[in-house]
Nucleic acid binder design. Structure first.
Lengths: 137, 137
DNA sequence: ATTGACGTTTACGTTAACGTCAACTACTGT
DNA sequence: ACAGTAGTTGACGTTAACGTAAACGTCAAT
């Protein structure tokens, strides 16, 4: 195998905009498991990817446990048929929640856009008449 | 004006799937301000809408303060030109964050879909050959 | 008159996700 | 030899968003 690129804890922290404390915390929780050289942590690209996914989950409002759980689905070992069915079921549940979130997110963005449009109208119309407020859909 | 529909605290709690404690907590924080009849809370449709929006924000992972802040943008009083510009700027910031969230959410859904597809393939292909894993994009 | 069903306030408890020291180690350049 | 930089392990502190329990009020139905 080719030699893998390695990262220190502060490299990763800077790259992803978190503190080293955060990364240590994730390891403490068992969500990351970097190598050790002496007592120093050494992160390989696998760890880096995992951290990236955890933080992505966090950005969409998942708890870290949920994030990690979903990541677990991605690389779940699919042994027996039963295992596969369980996996599919769990994917379905997750997707249901995320779909709801998608709808809520879009609704919020729509509302912001409408508000912005009203504000722009009010600006360009100078001191004319006040625009009628839209219904909060 | 026509007489407004009123709601008790437990009606709203049941409708939105939260506890009454939650609603009282929101009032305590100043995010809701129902009428009182005696010492009983009476919610009008305005309060109900506000609660709905707060919970929608919560579902997309916003803190309650952020939710309330965004709702504040919706019905911000747009007095001076300066006020309008500030409003537009704040809308822009919020939308930037929400757009990032949208991207993250879609990426997560894509990853789940790919995982599901692999699982289905593995199921229908019986005990043939293991499918090659996709890259975690 | 008592029993629910529903409401109220006050107050302490809990969990997640880190922040913030403190005290220590290990290497590198001067 | 020493300072500086980057790393380490505790351990206690903090905030958000409620949960949970206690103690009490109000009204309708039995």
């Amino acid at each position: 195998m080719a030699e893998q690129r390695h990262y220190t804890i502060s490299e990763l922290a800077e790259e992803f905009g978190v503190t080293t404390r955060t990364i240590r915390f994730y390891e403490e929780k068992g969500w990351l498991a970097p190598m050790r050289v002496g007592q120093r942590r050494v992160f390989r690209s696998k760890d880096r990817t995992r951290l990236r996914l955890i933080l992505r989950g966090k950005r969409i409002g998942l708890t870290l446990e949920e994030s990690v759980d979903i990541i677990g689905l991605y690389d779940a070992q699919t042994g027996s048929r039963r295992q596969l069915e369980v996996l599919l079921e769990r994917i379905g549940e997750r997707r249901a929640a995320l779909s709801q979130q998608l709808a809520d997110l879009k609704a919020t963005l729509r509302a912001l856009n409408e508000t912005e449009q009203r504000a722009r109208d009010a600006l360009t119309s100078g001191s004319k008449r006040a625009a009628r407020p839209r219904s909060t859909k």
